[in-house]
Amino acid sequence: MKETIGDVRRYKTDFEARADGGAMNPFTVMRHCLYAADSAKFGSMLTDRARATFDEWQAAEVREHE
């Protein structure tokens, strides 16, 4: 989780600022951290929509920092 918490915190900030976003509780943050560390192993911890939204955000972050 140490490796992924920074990214997930940035995602949380972006997500909660969206008009269609909601609040992410600490358990949701933890699930996103685990998913970010190993999506194959922890993919079932997130809903399909949460996975898709997070994956899209990660892809945009990668493109932005290239």
Rank of each mutant, 00 (worst) to 15 (best):
A36Y: 04
Y35W: 08
P26Y: 04
A36L: 15
V29A: 04
K2V: 08
W57Y: 07
T53F: 06
F27M: 08
A52C: 09
E64T: 14
T28W: 02
D55V: 11
A50E: 10
H32P: 08
R18V: 05
M24I: 06
R9S: 12
T28C: 03
D14L: 02
T53S: 08
E56W: 02
G21W: 03
E3D: 15
E56T: 07
R51E: 09
A23T: 07
S44Q: 10
R18I: 05
R63F: 11
A52L: 07
R51M: 09
M1S: 15
L34D: 10
D14T: 02
A59N: 11
V29L: 05
P26T: 11
F27H: 12
M30Q: 12
V29M: 04
L34A: 08
T28L: 03
M24Y: 00
V62K: 11
G22Q: 02
A59M: 14
A36S: 13
M30G: 13
Y11K: 04
R51N: 01
T4R: 10
P26G: 01
T47R: 00
F54E: 05
I5H: 13
T47M: 05
K2C: 13
D7N: 15
D38W: 03
A40F: 07
A37D: 09
R10I: 10
E61M: 12
G43Q: 04
L46K: 04
M30C: 13
A59G: 10
E16I: 02
E56M: 06
R51C: 00
S39E: 08
A37C: 13
A60D: 12
N25H: 10
N25K: 05
M1W: 14
V62N: 06
E16C: 02
D55P: 07
F54H: 01
A36H: 11
A50H: 09
Y11F: 07
R51I: 14
R49A: 14
D38S: 09
